[in-house]
Design a binder for these strands. Structure first.
Lengths: 161, 161
DNA sequence: AAGCTTTCCGACTGGAATAGTCGGAAAAGT
DNA sequence: ACTTTTCCGACTATTCCAGTCGGAAAGCTT
């Protein structure tokens, strides 16, 4: 239970963009499809953009698209970006382990490191091309963006058909 | 970075008791050896006791000891007790998964479950007999409890030798 | 130029969790 | 009686989480 909501949302958003496959999606479209609070999503997209994972265009006909092919984006990268170190405990981070008074010879550290390593391995080999291809369900409808009104909650301005 | 300080402390305390191997340790002894704030440790010991992991005796010559052989206590059990579910995200808990609007066909869930499973596997096969035997270093000194003054910070009442 | 739609940016907030402390009560031994 | 220990509950300060909100800037359309 250590993946924050923000990280969760970020991975969902990237997954949606991977499914869109090069097509750009508007912020509110992503929000509606993934059930992310729109105002919160903006914050997240900004961070994704800052990290170079996503490219944006403003104005009407604007939106977001992935900056790299989905196969080149690992889940690990997104999680790292929003979550920080993967180690379950501060004494077992690879980069800057926190000082531990029991350090030399604390057998627990080895186990925490082991958890860190397998977690890392899984997230690293999981990329968004695979995730996109494995996805299915009602919320995956590639054409919906341009064709019909799927979210009649907003914009009741033109009655389709 | 999801193991709380409390969980960390709890595992350290149990490890100390496993190293003591049947000998009982007083709360402040455990605290001194593991560098856990003494008042905080009390709270933790109470929880360990409530879960039946530890047995206690009051008064002078009192203290704590393990309620089971160290080999029978898995790291998973202690972590579960203090940390709750092992799944990285609420939608992937085995017991009561949180409702997810993208649920059927969300490929992310599979990966989170995979992380959960390997984490569980590692923590489950790691028991405190092994951890105790693998431990070493200055903070592991079985005889210190009864013999000399190792923590001259407290109790300056009788000058030894 | 006006007006719309979109992204962009920073500040703000309520609530929950974390990481403890503190005071005293109850056993048990000396 | 007195000391040492565990036991118990309440209290607290700080940080993190999960957002909201208001408005500015950019780009398209008419």
């Amino acid at each position: 239970m250590w993946i924050s909501r923000k990280t969760d949302y970020a991975t969902r958003a990237v997954l949606m963009l991977a499914i869109a496959d090069g097509e750009s999606l508007k912020s509110h479209e992503i929000a509606a499809r993934t059930h992310i609070p729109p105002s919160f999503l903006e914050q997240i997209m900004a961070q994704l953009r800052g990290a170079g994972l996503v490219r944006s265009v403003r104005g009407p006909a604007g939106g977001y698209k992935l900056n790299h092919p989905p196969a080149d984006i690992s889940l690990e990268r997104v999680v790292r970006l929003f979550q920080g170190p993967l180690a379950p405990i501060a004494c077992a981070t690879r980069s800057e382990p926190e000082f531990c008074p029991m350090d030399p010879g604390c057998s627990l550290k080895r186990t925490w490191a082991e958890v860190r390593d397998v977690t890392r391995a899984i997230l690293e080999r999981t990329n968004f091309a695979d995730l996109a291809s494995q996805a299915s369900g009602a919320w995956v409808q590639p054409a919906i963006t341009e064709t019909k009104e799927t979210t009649p909650v907003l914009r009741p301005r033109s009655v389709p058909r």
